[in-house]
Simulated assay, not measured.
Amino acid sequence: MNIFLWILTGVLAAFFLAAGVTKLSQSRAKLLESGNMNWVEDLSAGTVKLIGTAELLGAIGLILPAVLDIAPILVPLAATGLAVIMLLAIIVHARRKENQPIILNAVILVVAVVVAIFRFGPNSF
């Protein structure tokens, strides 16, 4: 089970690392141009950067504490925080009536919740 959780955690961390770096490295206008992030028009540039920072820190928090064996309790806390981000993303997309992103957000939410539950409980470090 530990290997399975590491795989889930690695995939989750890679997803949020890419998402966070994208939001932090590109301007709001460029994110809007991509066509995949139309929700950005509802938020300020600062809020988008805040979301990107939270995603990046969450990705780091999923891996480094466990690998370095320094405060491994941060792993399920990071997973919980990322689950909250996905829940909020679902709400934003539902308000905008964007059904396609909701499916991806729901899958990522489930993965984050599974990692959080198992790392808090039976498979904690």
Rank of each mutant, 00 (worst) to 15 (best):
I70Q: 03
D69M: 12
N99W: 10
S34H: 03
I63W: 10
I60E: 01
F118M: 14
L12T: 12
F120I: 05
K97Q: 09
F118S: 07
L62D: 02
A94V: 15
G20M: 09
A78S: 15
F16N: 02
S25N: 11
A94E: 13
V75E: 08
A89W: 00
N99D: 04
V110R: 07
A116M: 15
V48R: 01
S27T: 15
L57S: 06
I102V: 12
S25R: 13
T22C: 04
A18T: 14
V110T: 14
L64R: 05
A59G: 15
F120D: 00
V114S: 05
L74T: 11
T9N: 13
Q100F: 05
I70P: 00
T80N: 02
I51L: 12
V40N: 00
G10C: 13
A71P: 01
L82V: 06
P72R: 09
V107G: 06
A79T: 08
A106N: 06
R96P: 01
F4Y: 15
R95G: 10
R95A: 05
A83T: 07
A59I: 07
F4D: 11
L68G: 05
P101E: 09
V84N: 06
R119A: 04
L64Q: 05
S34Y: 03
I63Y: 09
V113W: 07
I7F: 15
I3L: 15
H93M: 13
A29N: 08
W6C: 12
A66D: 13
S25D: 05
A71S: 09
V115S: 05
M86A: 10
N38Y: 00
G46P: 06
V75D: 03
T80M: 14
P72K: 11
M37T: 02
R95W: 06
L56P: 00
E55H: 04
